[in-house]
Design a protein around this nucleic acid. Structure first.
Lengths: 146, 146
DNA sequence: GCCAAAATCATCCGAAATGATGACGACAGA
DNA sequence: TCTGTCGTCATCATTTCGGATGATTTTGGC
């Protein structure tokens, strides 16, 4: 960014010098003012467009996100206990991570849908999640899911 | 695009008229030429910058690249094309995988919630998913997500 | 310039999910 | 035996999602 400003300033300086020089050439000609003004306008308009484009070039901010590295997944029981997440709740979380709906999970675990809702609500609360996708994301970060 | 050119032309015309008028005001003053040239330069530079901004639409892309301690994730572009998933759709899918709601995604991408819904609906359809959690799961299996 | 694809936005409606509570039985440990 | 945790189930209100469709604008390639 600083470089752009520098270049802009430099080019501006050169142009001014140039214009200062051309000024005396055109001053004697009729309607020179219009020509001079037009030239200036066009020049700086182009320059402005170029500057605008430069400044708004897509900025790609690279953010480093740490990811659990181990291939063989081992449950982080410490974290699980810290958060007070029970076996059943973790079980439900795992099934959620697999993309199942509450109904499907209920069927798989042979319990009612309401029960699944309770478990999921609890685990969301303990994880600090507001959505199941977020719960899955956090679950992975905490080493509760592979 | 056409509208921009039109507006640009119109504003340009008005400015020229304005400058023509100011021309006679400043002509009698010493160093008027420099002032006139400077004004023109600044005006059109600003105009150019504005035009440049309009044409490029501020798109500040924040890309989060996971620097995992293992295999660096590479997008399976083949699969992406096979499924006909566009960039924007993939972008939305990534944000869904991060646990964001449609509303949050809309805010982050500077588009309406309806647009996000359209993108997600399309990507679900292309992936064969019925839920966002399932879409995330499938996305990972297909190598579209890390 | 023209055209197809992509991106944008909207509306309607039903389904799914979430939040907040309350309740009840089983069971383990103090 | 009493207490606390866990698992189970339920109701009600609200929010979020997902599906179906139609429309307009932008983009990108020819």
């Amino acid at each position: 960014m600083k470089r752009h400003v520098l270049i802009y300033g430099l080019v501006g300086g050169i142009l001014i010098t140039l214009l200062k020089w051309t000024e005396y050439r055109f001053l004697v000609i009729e309607h020179s003012l219009e020509i001079y003004g037009g030239l200036t306008a066009v020049t700086f308009a182009v320059l402005g467009i170029w500057l605008g484009l430069k400044l708004t070039r897509q900025k790609i901010v690279v953010k480093e996100v740490p990811v659990a590295a181990g291939e063989p997944f081992v449950l982080n029981e410490r974290k699980q206990e810290d958060l007070g997440i029970t076996r059943r709740e973790l079980e439900v979380l795992e099934l959620i991570a697999q993309g199942m709906s509450n109904r499907e999970i209920a069927g798989k675990l042979y319990v009612s849908e309401n029960t699944v809702k309770t478990h999921s609500s609890r685990v969301f609360d303990k994880l600090g999640a507001r959505r199941r996708t977020q719960a899955v994301q956090l679950g992975k970060e905490f080493g509760l899911l592979p």
